[in-house]
Simulated scan of single mutants.
Amino acid sequence: MNITDKIEQAKPALPVEGRMDAPPRARAQQPGGRHVRQEDVVELSTSLSQISTTELDQQQARRIAAIKAQIQSGEYRVDSRQVAEKMLADGSGI
């Protein structure tokens, strides 16, 4: 018997109902003991809207203005070594 025969003899996967990561007591049941599928819920925090980003926005605007001025005056230079290091760094997607 080779591996192909074993694969062909494998049992088909059975569908799973309900959330398997939830403990059994957290699953809702219909009368008769049948489980009801529960939907996942995503709640977004409102605390981010309470944090002021004005200072960060101003810092970013100053950096952008400085780079634009350097580009317009011809003083802006790209460090090719730094660009290459960033491209080859872990997590760069390359």
Results as ranks from 00 to 15, higher is better:
Arg19Gln: 10
Pro31Ala: 12
Pro31Asp: 11
Gln60Ala: 12
Glu17Tyr: 14
Ala10Gly: 06
Val83Phe: 06
Ile67Trp: 02
Glu43Ile: 13
Gly32Ile: 01
Ser92Pro: 02
Met87Ile: 13
Glu39Met: 12
Ala28Trp: 05
Lys6Glu: 09
Asp57Lys: 14
Ile94Ser: 03
Tyr76Val: 00
Leu56Asn: 15
Leu44Ala: 11
Ile3Lys: 08
Met1Tyr: 03
Leu44Asp: 01
Tyr76Cys: 06
Ile51His: 07
Lys68Val: 05
Val42Gln: 08
Arg27Thr: 11
Thr4Lys: 00
Gly32Tyr: 01
Asn2Ile: 02
Met87His: 04
Met20Thr: 15
Val16Phe: 04
Ser52Pro: 01
Ala69Phe: 00
Asp40Tyr: 07
Gln30His: 10
Gly18His: 01
His35Pro: 11
Gln30Gly: 08
Arg27Phe: 02
Ser80Cys: 08
Glu55Leu: 12
Pro31Phe: 06
Asp79Phe: 08
Ala89Phe: 00
Ile71Trp: 07
Glu43Arg: 08
Ile67Val: 15
Ala13Met: 09
Val41Tyr: 06
Gly18Arg: 02
Pro24Thr: 01
Lys68Gln: 15
Gln29Phe: 10
Val42Met: 09
Ser92Leu: 03
Ala22Val: 10
Ala13Trp: 04
Glu8Arg: 15
Ala66Met: 06
Lys6Phe: 05
Arg37Val: 07
Ala22Asn: 10
Ser49Met: 12
Leu56Glu: 15
Leu44Met: 09
Gly91Cys: 05
Val83Leu: 10
Asp5Asn: 13
Gln58Thr: 03
Glu55Ile: 04
Ala22Ile: 09
Ala69Val: 02
Lys11His: 07
Gln58Glu: 13
Ile3Gln: 06
Asp21Lys: 08
Ile71Lys: 12
Ser45Glu: 01
